[in-house]
């Protein structure tokens, strides 16, 4: 049984490594390399060559795993690669937390828990592959349905643990759900305070006194069809309150009124 399972791991692990190498050898590799923690680890000028070198090693080990003959050393190489990956992730987490992983795609995704779990899964997969005695097509022939189920399930786990791939499946899924029924469609309709502030800032009334204003918005309240907004002001050394009346029923900056009223300036209790 364990030999059969090990056979499936040859295919899964080899496939993942070849897939990972494609990104590192592709045309978008320089961008991904510069955004990855390799930039910090080996320096800016060596980041791209190092990134491509990792891709070549992944391609080589992946190809060894999926092609005959079956040698234990192939699995050991894959284990060593996974250990190296864990060490790289730990370095990235500690020394370049905002840098990308650059592992399974060119999408910029900083190293988080999922990356460590994925590397752990690949490490376990490599260790399992060391038990294989036959080339993977033999295990496929033994139990084709179970083989496909294992490979699909394990691939799904690896995809789910890859934040670089979220935009391929997770976001479209969530987008679809929101399109079917937007969770925030029933928000009560009001005139937000920010709308009145925006209208105010577009007005000549605001511009006429902006040089005298000292504070952000102090207070606001509604009075009929007006929203009143107050700011602290200082006019020629006299403390005052600038009070603006902004229309609530429409966007009419030209109708905004302003007054500068003396302020007592008492200390808050």
């Amino acid at each position: 049984m364990i030999e059969w399972f090990a056979g499936t791991q040859q295919f899964v692990l080899g496939g993942v490594l070849i897939w990972a190498s494609m990104f590192k050898l592709g045309r978008r590799a320089p961008v991904a390399a510069r955004r990855s923690a390799l930039r910090k680890l080996v320096g800016e000028t060596r980041a791209v060559p190092a990134y491509r070198a990792v891709g070549l090693v992944e391609l080589l080990v992946g190809a060894l795993l999926v092609t005959p003959p079956v040698l234990v050393v192939e699995a050991y190489l894959a284990v060593a690669l996974s250990v190296g990956m864990l060490a790289y992730l730990a370095y990235a987490k500690l020394r370049a937390p905002e840098a990308g992983c650059g592992c399974l795609g060119d999408k910029h995704t900083p190293v988080r828990g999922r990356g460590f779990v994925r590397a752990g899964v690949l490490l376990a997969s490599g260790a399992l592959a060391a038990w294989s005695t036959a080339w993977w097509p033999a295990t496929l022939a033994d139990a084709p349905l179970a083989w496909v189920a294992v490979v699909v399930a394990q691939s799904a786990v690896i995809v789910a643990l890859s934040p670089e791939l979220d935009h391929r499946w997770l976001l479209p899924l969530r987008r679809w759900r929101v399109r079917v029924s937007h969770p925030l469609a029933r928000t009560p309709v009001t005139v937000p305070l920010e709308s009145s502030v925006q209208q105010l800032q577009r007005s000549d009334a605001y511009r006429s006194v902006v040089g005298a204003l000292r504070s952000d918005l102090l207070d606001s309240w509604e009075e009929g069809r007006w929203r009143l907004l107050t700011y602290s002001a200082d006019q020629d050394g006299v403390a005052a309150t600038a009070v603006f009346a902004v229309p609530l029923d429409g966007h009419r900056p030209q109708d905004i009124r302003v007054a500068l009223v003396p302020e007592s300036g008492e200390v808050l209790v």
Partner: peptide
């Protein structure tokens, strides 16, 4: 802080 200080 005074009554003229805006607090957000």
């Amino acid at each position: 802080l005074t009554s003229a200080t805006s607090v957000w």
